[in-house]
Nucleic acid binder design. Structure first.
Lengths: 239, 239
DNA sequence: CGCTTAATTGACCATAATCAACCAGGGTGG
DNA sequence: CCACCCTGGTTGATTATGGTCAATTAAGCG
C-alpha cells in the first residue's frame, strides 16, 4: 500500500521517485496512539512533526469554560502539526479521535528538505496552505450557515478527503466519531447534532448506521452544504 | 519608513540585508485600490500575490443567500493571497475595506525565492502558517464563544497586529470599519454588533469614537476574549 | 454483570436574528 | 445652495435557532 501522504500529494502534482525516497527516509518508525490520547500537547515545542498514517485525529482548542472546539479533522496522509517546524510552539493540541498510527518526521530532516529540495518544499508548504483553506471553509460555515448546512459540509469534505487516500468510495465512508465529538467540530451541542442526524436520516439525504455513513443524495448534500471543492485542490497542477 | 512586511518578519527572525534586498526587488510598483473594490477575485488564477502596504483588507466568502463571511482582516505587511502561488486558483475573494495601497509580487519571482533562498522561503511559509493559526483562533471564537468574547478577541488581535507594524500604540487603534463589516467578520448581524459596542462602552472596557478605539481595560479585554497571543508568533526564533 | 459513555427525546430557555422605525452624515444632481 | 438619497448607527419588538437541563434507553467495556 502506498504511503497515504504520497497518495495525496500525487493528486496535486508529480512526486518524483527521489522525492518519494526522501519522504520515506524522513519518517521515524510508526507508533500507535489510543483513542482519546493527546498526540501533540498544546503549547509544547515539538522537535518533530507528526504524520497520521491510519485512523482519525483532531486539532483542538480548549476554552476557559471547559468547552472544546475542534478546528480540523485529520485523515490518513495528513501532517497534524507540520506548522510546528516554523511556528516552534504549538498554538493548539492534537488528539487521536480513534486508535491511530502515526510517524514522526524530525524537524532537522524537514529543514534539510527546505534546503535541498525546493519542489518538495513547495508540496509540503501547499499542504499547510490547504489546512488554512479548510479552516476558511469551516469559518464560513460556522459564521453564516445553520447547523444542517454546516454538518452537510463536514460530511462532504470528509468524504472527498477520505476518497483521496483510498479510504472511501461509492459515497460511503466510515465515520467512527461520537456525536459529542461532532458537536465540538461543528460548534454545536451534542443534543443538536443528534437532531440533525435524525433530520438528515428522515429526509433521505443519508443513511447513518454508526460508524458507516452512506450518502444517498450527493447532489442535495452538496446543495445544502454549498460545497465547492476548489479549496481541497485536488487538481493536478505543477507547483 | 521600513517596509511593513520586513518589519513584521523581523519580529519573528533575523531578515538579512540580502533577503531584504530580494524582498524589495520582488515587488511591482504600488497601486491604490478604492474602499469596497475587489483586490483579488474569488476563483481567479493570479500570476502574482498581493502585499498590502497601507489600509485594511479582508479575505471573504459569499454564501448562496447573499450572506458574507470575512475570514481574515489584513493589515499592512500582510500578503493577502500568498497562498495563490501554490494553490493556483483562489478559494476566496479579497477586498479593500478602506482605501489601500498594494504591491504585486510576481509568482515567477516568488518561485525563484523558493529555489534560491531557503531561509526566506521559510519566513514566507511561516507567514501563511500564521494565517492558518489566525483562522483557528477565529474558529474557536466562532464555535464556542459568545458575541462579546468574539468581538473582544478581534479587537485584541487587531491591536497587536497593528502594533507589530507600528500602526497602533498605547492601547489605541484606528479601526475604520463599519458595523456591518464587523458583523461579517464576527458572524453576527450588524444590529447585534451595535449592541455589543454599546455594551463594551457602557462597561468601561473601551472607548469607541469611530474610527478611533481606545482600550481602557486591556486586562479585562484579554480575559473576556481568552486571548493568548502565542498564535501570532511575535517572539524572535530562528526558523 | 455493573459502570460509564453515547444516543435519543422532551421541556424550557437564551443568545442573537429579523423586522421595523428613526436619526445622522456625506455625497450628488438639479 | 439645497433637497434627496444612500449608508450607517441606534433602539425597540418579536422570532428562531440552537443551548441547557433532565430523563430514559442503548451500547461499549473491564
Amino acid at each position: 500500500m502506498m504511503n497515504p501522504l504520497v497518495e495525496k500529494l500525487s493528486r496535486r502534482d508529480v512526486v518524483t521517485d527521489v522525492e518519494q525516497a526522501v519522504l520515506a527516509e524522513l519518517l521515524d518508525p510508526p507508533r500507535a496512539v489510543a483513542a482519546g490520547e493527546d498526540i501533540v500537547k498544546n503549547h509544547s515545542r515539538p522537535d518533530h512533526s507528526t504524520l497520521l498514517l491510519s485512523g482519525l485525529a483532531a486539532r483542538y482548542v480548549y476554552l476557559a469554560d471547559g468547552g472544546r472546539q475542534i478546528t480540523e479533522i485529520g485523515v490518513p496522509g495528513d501532517f497534524m502539526d507540520l506548522h510546528s517546524l516554523l511556528m516552534k510552539q504549538m498554538d493548539h493540541g492534537v488528539l487521536a479521535l480513534t486508535e491511530v498510527t502515526v510517524a514522526g518526521a524530525p524537524h532537522g530532516k524537514l529543514r534539510a528538505i527546505t534546503e535541498d529540495h525546493p519542489h518538495l518544499t513547495r508540496l509540503l508548504w501547499l499542504d499547510t496552505i490547504i489546512d488554512a483553506a479548510i479552516h476558511r471553509q469551516w469559518l464560513a460555515a460556522m459564521g453564516r450557515r445553520n447547523g444542517l448546512g454546516r454538518f452537510a459540509h463536514l460530511i462532504a469534505e470528509l468524504y472527498l478527503r477520505l476518497e483521496t487516500v483510498g479510504l472511501a468510495r461509492d459515497h460511503v465512508l466510515e465515520l467512527p466519531l461520537s456525536q459529542p465529538v461532532l458537536g465540538d467540530a461543528l460548534g454545536l451541542s451534542a443534543v443538536h447534532v443528534n437532531r440533525l442526524v435524525a433530520e438528515m436520516r428522515a429526509s433521505g439525504m443519508l443513511k447513518w448506521t454508526h460508524p458507516r455513513v452512506e450518502i444517498l443524495d450527493w447532489d442535495r448534500l452538496v446543495e445544502v452544504a454549498e460545497f465547492d471543492p476548489t479549496y481541497l485542490r485536488l487538481r493536478k497542477e505543477a507547483v
